[in-house]
């Protein structure tokens, strides 16, 4: 009986740990999307930022090993990570310049950068490796896992803390959790958060209050680039240990959906990102069965659409109930 419980608990924690892992890139990107959205600039280029960051991270870590053969091994993934963050943030910076300096429409410019990122990463990959599909021919590095000691064989908790197979969680999984806490805290409790939200909600008021609205929007977009890059780096140097063409696979767009689904609140956004992560895990599980791959790939976007519709429907029903209650009072009075 108790053994069954442990087994069930273990399965559940495997799913939880897997969900967290699958959700990590979406959490990073959605936190980035949230910050820029609150600053008044929707960042449609999250997808492209993730791709560029993943690519730069993988390539840099691989070339770091070629260029500095004598350097300690731990250096290469961290160099890659830094390069990935830098490259992704730079792409977001490009979007900021297009929009804030040159007056380009955010949506159009963002989509343009996504298409650019898709093509550019494949072009450079083909040029460097001769392969248009992935960087499998290069030896690239993963960022380290963090493993809690003394958890060997501890049921449930061991799996939760150190993952299925006791290898620990990638450092960026913890990074995503830390980023969640930081974003939630900074938006609510810091002067910067207050100013960012003011600039996003009523730019004219912020301007009249003497706030540097443009600079705040730069900060919002650059921060969103930095956070989304964290997700991209995780994809290439944690989730997998190589770069694949189009490896962001729509996660940047899912992240945007998470921002709206989460009601523009940090914790809501991360909860929505976890739902999307869960859908990915479910898709992977179904992939083990004889379900056609096309159906499996449809699951995360279907969950997204279903979640958006359900939340809206729920709000509408609640509104209708409130209206009905109000009408009852109106007629009875």
């Amino acid at each position: 009986m108790s053994l069954d419980l442990v087994a069930a608990g273990t399965v559940a924690t495997v799913v939880v740990a897997g969900t967290l892992r699958a959700a990590t890139p979406i959490i990073f990107a959605s936190l980035g999307g949230l910050i820029s959205e609150l600053a008044g600039c929707i960042n449609v280029a999250l997808e492209g930022v993730m791709l560029v960051a993943a690519f730069a991270g993988v390539i840099t870590s691989a070339y770091s090993a070629l260029w500095f053969p004598d350097a300690p091994l731990w250096l290469h993934p961290w160099l890659g990570c830094a390069a990935g963050l830098l490259a992704g943030t730079a792409l977001a910076g490009l979007l900021a310049v297009f929009h804030l300096e040159l007056g380009a429409d955010l949506i159009v410019a963002g989509i343009g950068l996504n298409i650019l990122a898709q093509g550019l990463t494949v072009l450079l990959m083909a040029h460097l490796t001769g392969d248009k599909g992935s960087t499998a021919s290069l030896t690239s590095f993963a960022l380290p896992n963090l493993r809690w000691p003394g958890m060997d064989g501890v049921p449930v908790l061991g799996v939760l803390l150190n993952g299925d197979g006791d290898a620990g969680h990638n450092v960026l999984v913890y990074g995503a959790l830390a980023a969640t806490g930081w974003v939630a805290w900074a938006l609510r409790h810091t002067v910067f958060g207050l100013r960012l939200r003011a600039a996003g909600e009523n730019a004219e008021a912020a301007l009249a209050a003497g706030l540097p609205v443009k600079r705040l929007r730069y900060a919002g977009l650059l921060l969103s680039g930095l956070l989304a890059s964290g997700g991209g780096v995780f994809l290439g140097m944690g989730y997998l240990t190589l770069f694949q063409a189009d490896m962001a696979a729509g996660r940047g767009y899912l992240a945007l959906a998470a921002v709206f689904l989460g009601g523009h609140r940090p914790l809501g956004t991360v909860a929505a990102a976890l739902v999307f992560g869960g859908a990915t895990v479910m898709a992977a599980r179904l992939g083990l069965l004889a379900v056609p791959a096309e159906v499996v790939f449809m699951i995360p976007p279907l969950v997204t659409i279903a979640a958006l519709v359900l939340v809206k429907q729920h709000q509408r029903l609640a509104a209708r109930r409130r209206a009905a209650a109000g009408r009852a009072t109106l007629l009875s009075s």
């Binding site: 409790h189 002067v191 100013r195 939200r197 003011a198 706030l211």
Partner: peptide, 23 residues
Amino acid sequence: VPSLTVAENVVLGHEPRRAGGRL
């Protein structure tokens, strides 16, 4: 800014701070 409080609106741009950039 409608979603902020009266106090937050009044001090916006000249906010009293605590350590760590906190409002």
